[in-house]
Amino acid sequence: MAACVGGCLVLAVLLSLALGSRAIAPGEVLGAIFSGLDSDNATVITSQRLPRTILGLVCGLALGMAGALMQGHTRNPLADPGLFGVNGGAGLGVAVLVFGFGVAAPEAIVFAALVGAGAVSVLVFVAGLGALRGGALVQLAVVGTSVAALCTALTSALVLLDKQTLDVLRFWDAGSLAAPDRSAWGLVMPLMGVGMVLALANGVALRELALGEEVAQALGTRVATARVVGIAAITLLCGGATALCGPLAFIGLVAPHVVRRACAHDYRWLVPLAGCAGAVLLLLADTIGRVVSPPGELEAGIVMAVIGAPVLLSIARAKRLVSL
């Protein structure tokens, strides 16, 4: 099964490199990357498409893993960093920084995004774990969406006061892989790498936690440590992804569900596989957005909403709403 997901990932990467406003044959794509082929198309691939594909790969991995972690910790099938405002919190952090201090240095933006994402994920965890004990499911979704609404309202207030910020943020808001600025990559990608390692390690504890806190404790899991590691991983992954390509919703919701339906329920496998599925989704969404309305582009975030909302609808319309 893991091989199948891996195959999909390779296919999605190839598609993302080959398709665009100008379709390039797969042989030429491989030649451009591996044997240093020198042609116009090769230049397009190495300078334009490759960075974009790498960005999609990393952010998709991060968001898919973060979604699996959130669903595992809150035991809520609706958990998604985008819907629950973690990405919105990161966005608010950036807006506060840019507006309040006039700083637009990449390090500062990354830091602000991480702080915002961290604050919201702590809040969602507190509300979500409370809801878990109450046995109710929808509360967390409502808490998450209202936190997201609050973040959006505050962000737009800051944006409204400054037309220049609006011009930047109205594209950033849509969630897109077309970000031309690569100066923050060197800083964010290692942080996201740390987040991924933490997430993979957290998968082991989540497997026990899925049996309930008491059972997990009896089996020797340190519950408090596991929660803290989970929050740290989600913060690093979501904050980083949002700092790089804007708030993307639905990837963290859809990816774990796809993997669960296809193969794995064990969180040790679910977390990495959900990451791969997230990368496939984001790359596909981006490729679709590039192809569907030439000569312009549809932002990946908008394509993801069109793909993701029906999935949420199908979960909502299921005969019985199941808790994880």
Partner: peptide, 13 residues
């Protein structure tokens, strides 16, 4: 419950 979830999805769209 279902109404709220459907609402969230359609609102996102």
């Amino acid at each position: 419950l279902r109404l709220i979830l459907v609402g969230i999805a359609v609102n996102a769209l």
